[in-house]
Write a protein that binds this DNA or RNA. Structure first.
Length: 512
RNA sequence: GGCUGGGUAGCUCAGCUGGUUAGAGCACGGCACUCAUAAUGCCGGGGUCGCGGGUUCGAGUCCCGCCCCAGCUACCA
């Protein structure tokens, strides 16, 4: 059994969960569940990034202490993940004591192993009082901050701890050259290579002006203790997770699943920190795309534009998961639309899988008293197994994690089952007792097809997969069945029951 | 501006190192069937492969130029 440790980005705790957050967690959850059924010993970490000036500000605006505020936000996120069936093993919160202690340890480890990498330096920048942050040239128009054009920018000099990121340019280049799979998909890897080619600049490791965070372990030469800068607090969460009570998080991680907007932090700063601390690097950074709504992008810091609850309520959490995983390529961008959601649901879940289950269970009850007959495996099984092998290949990580390709391969088996029924015409065979063996063979094949579908769909639609598995009378659970077992299973003797439709067709519009 | 990737049927996309009538899914039209959630299966219409040159016996596939789109171009995360 091989170990598989995957993480998602920790979500910034200054608002409620939105579609963008959900896409990442659902995709990661499908990967986690898939690897459990591959037989891997999976540890799946998600969580919250709860520190920083913005959080402190938002809390203040809400009239709350920062900790009370993030407690409330974390609760909302966790409730959403429960609703969506996210099967994380650990929920990180950076405001938790073990994280503070472990971040401090990591920073001290860097001081110890790479004494030259942290140093004091003055940073001079254009500070916007409205934003309470330094502005980059790109954000400045006519000497004013784009967001606060009525105020003038101040030139402020601040003394901080800096991290000698520049010293890692060559080592990072060498690592990417030796491990082409380290950053995926390829387009993100190209961006990182371009960045390394231009050379890295040192980055702040501590900040003055706000206290909501982990105190930087060593004071500046003038005695001031500053707050650890966001990336030296947030990124280490993947590593600090193992210090939490009850955690079995190993190190290094097999894959960090992140949004494409934060690839560089994970592919450059984080590995450099680990090198400085003399710790092993994660095997892969997988950067997924974004989902837009009405042309507007979502990201961690974008506003809520779609009530997640509404989308989930439409056809249930599993259908929502299916739609996102099927219609949004996990290595690129996609767009949410109600029309598309309904079209995919109707065509593939109601008319496709749902109807297939319905016609198969009906025939088994009608022709076999609900007991799956004995039948030998044939070409249909072989063709299905080829598709499933493709699904496993897509999820193996060699080419990153194109989750949509895996699901697509599984969906092909639904079409094949419908075709088999049409070709074999069991209702014709049933009229002729001499064709009994042929009829049994077809129905047994269909049972195996549905059973395998339940098992392979479990990572994508955990609840619906169990409902199907139960209707088929399978032993144990679909999600608890390994793919290896599914590939060889025999359903002879299972008691099938035709229950409620798995995916009811959408209600026609009122008045239509 | 620079770097990277992309522009192929109404929509979303496949088309590896150049080679026969350019494919899939969805949508659309017709036919068949009745086990099924008026579901399913079969057949079909539909493309100047962004534009213009070039190389080649032959280019969606290579070269040059141009147009358009997306991402990146570092301390909000």
């Amino acid at each position: 059994m091989s170990r598989f440790y995957l993480t998602t980005a920790i979500d910034y705790a200054n608002g409620d969960p939105h579609l963008g957050h959900a896409l990442e967690k659902i995709g990661a959850d499908a990967i986690a569940r898939f690897h459990r059924q591959l037989g891997d010993d999976v540890w799946f970490l998600i969580g919250m990034d709860e520190h920083g000036q913005k959080v402190a500000q938002t809390a203040e605006q809400a009239g709350m202490a920062p900790q009370a505020f993030v407690d409330r936000v974390a609760e909302r996120f966790q409730a959403m993940w429960t609703t969506l069936g996210i099967s994380h093993d650990q929920f990180m919160r950076t405001s938790a004591a073990p994280h503070h202690a472990a971040v401090t340890d990591l920073l001290e480890r860097i001081f110890r192993h790479s004494p030259d990498d942290f140093y004091e330096r003055s940073y001079t920048g254009r500070y916007c009082v409205g934003c309470e942050s330094f502005k980059q040239p790109a954000d400045i128009t006519d000497e004013r901050c784009a967001l606060h054009p009525t105020r003038s920018l101040q030139e402020i000099t601040e003394r901080n701890w800096f991290f000698r990121l520049s010293a890692y340019t060559d080592r990072l280049k060498a690592h990417l050259a030796a491990h082409p799979e380290f950053v995926q998909p390829a387009t993100r890897r190209n961006e990182i290579l371009a960045l390394l080619e231009q050379g890295l600049e040192d980055v702040s490791a501590s900040r003055a002006r706000f206290a909501w965070g982990v105190p930087f372990p060593r004071p500046l030469s003038d005695g001031e203790t500053q707050t650890t800068y966001v990336w030296f607090d947030a990124l280490p969460n993947y590593w600090t997770a193992q210090t939490f009570p009850g955690s079995r998080a190993p190190w290094p991680a097999d894959v960090h699943i992140v949004g494409k907007d934060i690839t560089r932090f994970h592919a450059v700063i984080w590995p450099a920190m680990l090198m400085a601390a003399d710790l092993p690097l994660p095997a892969m950074i997988w950067a997924h795309g974004f989902i837009s709504l009405g042309g507007e992008r979502f990201s961690k810091s974008a506003g809520v534009k779609l009530e997640l609850a509404d989308a989930i309520a439409r056809f249930g959490p599993d259908a929502f998961r299916y739609y996102l995983l099927r219609d949004v390529p996990f290595d690129g961008d996609g767009a949410f639309s109600w029309e598309r959601f309904e079209a995919v649901y109707t065509a593939e879940l109601a008319n496709g899988l749902g109807n297939l289950a319905s016609r198969m269970t009906a025939m088994l009850e009608k022709y076999c008293d609900g007991i799956v007959p004995t039948g030998v495996r044939g070409a249909t099984d072989a063709a299905d197994l080829a598709d499933y092998a493709e699904a496993r290949a897509a999820m193996a990580g060699r080419r990153g994690f194109p989750v949509h390709e895996a699901l697509e391969a599984v969906v092909r088996t639904v079409g094949r089952a419908n075709q088999l029924i049409q070709d074999a015409k069991p209702w014709v065979l049933a009229k002729n007792p001499a064709q009994r063996e042929a009829l049994d063979g077809v129905l047994a094949t269909l049972a195996r097809q549905l059973a395998r579908q339940a098992v392979y769909l479990a990572p994508f639609m955990p609840q619906k997969a169990e409902a199907l598995w139960q209707a088929l009378g399978g032993p144990g659970t679909a999600g608890g069945t390994t793919f290896a077992a599914a590939d060889t299973l025999d359903c002879a003797g299972w008691r099938v029951t035709k229950g409620e439709g798995l995916f009811p067709r959408p209600e026609p519009p009122a008045g239509a």
